[in-house]
Computed example of a mutant assay.
Amino acid sequence: MQTTFKRIAAALLISLSLGLSGTAMAQAIAPINVNSADEELLAELPGIGPSRATAIIEEREANGAFENADDLTRVNGIGPATVDRMRDQIKFEE
């Protein structure tokens, strides 16, 4: 009984460790260029789902490239708090 418990506990610890290492790896990924990224990539940003990703693309096509993070507030539904959550995960190149 104790052996079974130890095996289950070990498996859970391994799973947890692998899950946490995946999170750390995700944070090491290069920032997303909001001026060229597609909907799928933009939707990965915190606070941005498919509908806001589409709105970002529509805004940049209608009114030009974003020059900085604060320009994203031009998009309906994106405010300063959302911008602050993703500020270190985005870049602005044309």
Rank of each mutant, 00 (worst) to 15 (best):
L20R: 09
T73F: 03
Q89D: 13
L18C: 02
A55C: 14
I8K: 01
T54G: 04
V34I: 03
L41H: 10
F5E: 15
G77A: 05
S15Q: 11
Q2M: 11
L13D: 02
N35A: 00
A69G: 06
A24G: 09
D71N: 04
A10H: 13
G64W: 15
V83W: 11
N35D: 00
M1F: 10
L12Y: 11
M25K: 07
A24H: 12
L72H: 07
F5H: 15
T4G: 08
E61V: 10
P31L: 02
A55N: 13
I48T: 04
N63M: 10
T82K: 05
A30H: 08
F92Q: 13
Q89M: 14
N35Q: 00
M86H: 03
A62P: 12
D70N: 06
D71E: 10
F92R: 05
L20G: 10
M86C: 01
N63C: 06
A9M: 05
P31T: 04
T82R: 02
I56S: 01
A24R: 14
M1A: 11
E40P: 05
A28E: 10
E93M: 07
I56D: 03
S21E: 15
K6G: 09
P80W: 15
A26S: 12
A69T: 11
A26T: 10
E44L: 02
I29G: 08
R87C: 01
N76H: 06
T54L: 14
T73C: 05
I8H: 04
A62D: 11
L41Y: 04
E59P: 04
N76Y: 09
D84L: 05
I78W: 06
E59I: 07
L45Y: 12
T54V: 08
K91C: 11
G79M: 04
I32S: 05
P46E: 07
G64P: 15
G79S: 06
M25F: 14
P46N: 04
P80E: 11
A81G: 08
A43K: 03
L20M: 08
R7D: 13
F92C: 00
F66Q: 00
R7S: 07
N33C: 03
K91N: 06
T73A: 01
L16V: 13
S51V: 15
E58D: 11
A30M: 07
V83N: 02
M1L: 14
L42W: 10
E61C: 08
R60T: 03
E39M: 01
P50N: 07
I56T: 04
E61I: 09
A37R: 03
A10S: 13
T3G: 09
L45Q: 02
L12P: 07
A62C: 09
E59R: 01
E59W: 09
T54P: 05
A62F: 09
M86P: 12
L42G: 02
N68S: 12
N68L: 15
V34S: 02
A81W: 14
L45A: 00
D70P: 03
G64Q: 11
L72G: 03
L45F: 05
L13N: 06
I32A: 02
A55S: 07
I48P: 01
E39R: 13
R74H: 06
N63K: 02
A69M: 13
T4A: 08
I48L: 00
I78P: 03
L12H: 04
P50Y: 14
E44I: 10
R7N: 13
A62R: 03
